[in-house]
């Protein structure tokens, strides 16, 4: 069983919902990112999404765009990020790690080289925003062959046929984009999400994570009523951005704890 499947099995047994934070690798620097990942686990996060910075992040709002720009100023690339994941794994062999980003850094490294390196480093899942399943069949097969879960997005605009097709290709979990828009700009509408999720449930036995527009304990709790996992990205990145240098870990811990508590209530 993959680490992601194992984690969801444990959570189901404990009747808990997964909290999935997203942070950009290298924001403000890779060392802090590594410290933040451990801190997020200590604060009750279940799966970690690590953003791979890209020069042209078409699906991201201003907060994640700026995080990527900060990381790219230091020329952080996939190789650096995979080494960091490898270091993280020395201390934590249980928490699933998902890399999230755009196709071109992977294409530049070569799909096969990337998947092999990701597996070696201890990456459990990969979500490539601009790889819809029909454009990355070989990549998906490579991921499956090397025990890396290919995770795909579904959106409010996805048709039933599309949901069925995408659900078949994905593993690990399905990531439902809660709204029509980019990351971190609009606020999520939990009742809208609740209307769409039954279609996903009918199409797939995979756990469903919901992201985009979840920014506090209340919205996280509302989403957790209907989803298996809640993803929070831009708001955590804003905490990092606004934090005095060296206090990022404390700030992020303080932000995440009440959200964990709200999910467990």
């Amino acid at each position: 069983m993959s680490r992601i499947a194992q984690r969801f099995a444990q959570l189901t047994q404990a009747k808990r919902k997964a909290l999935i934070p997203y942070i950009t690798a290298g924001d403000p620097d890779l060392q802090t990112t590594e410290a933040l990942l451990h801190a997020l686990v200590e604060s009750g996060c279940d799966i970690l999404e690590i953003g791979v910075p890209f020069s042209d992040p078409m699906a991201d709002g201003p907060a994640i765009q700026r995080a990527g720009e900060r990381a790219l100023k230091q020329h952080i690339g996939l190789v650096d990020i995979l080494s960091m994941v490898q270091r993280f794994r020395l201390r934590d062999t249980a928490t699933p790690i998902v890399l999230m980003g755009y196709a071109n850094p992977i294409e530049a490294m070569g799909q096969k080289n990337f998947v092999l390196a990701a597996q070696t480093a201890g990456v459990d899942g990969v979500l490539v925003v601009d790889y819809p399943p029909e454009e990355c069949e070989e990549f998906t097969a490579l991921c499956r062959a090397h025990a890396v879960d290919p995770i795909f997005l579904l959106a409010p605009t996805s048709t039933d046929a599309r949901i069925a097709a995408v659900a078949k290709q994905g593993s690990g979990y399905l990531y439902y984009v809660s709204l029509k828009g980019v990351t971190g700009v609009k606020a999520v509408d939990a009742s809208e999400v609740a209307l769409h999720l039954p279609k996903l449930r009918a199409a797939s036995p995979l756990p469903i994570a919901v992201g985009f527009g979840i920014r506090d304990a209340a919205s996280a709790r509302a989403i957790a009523q209907v989803a298996d996992a809640v993803v929070i990205g831009s708001r955590i990145i804003t905490e990092i951005e606004q934090s005095p240098k060296g206090e990022e870990v404390a700030r992020v811990k303080a932000f995440v704890r009440p959200i964990r508590e709200a999910l467990d209530q």
Binding site: G77, V79, P105, E107
Partner: peptide
């Protein structure tokens, strides 16, 4: 350039070794 993916299509791109668009 080298082939890669940007702006919704695969094509030749001017990019660095990390796949960042230059």
């Amino acid at each position: 350039g080298k082939p890669g993916v940007l702006h919704g299509n695969r094509t030749y791109l001017l990019q660095d070794a990390n796949g960042q668009i230059i």
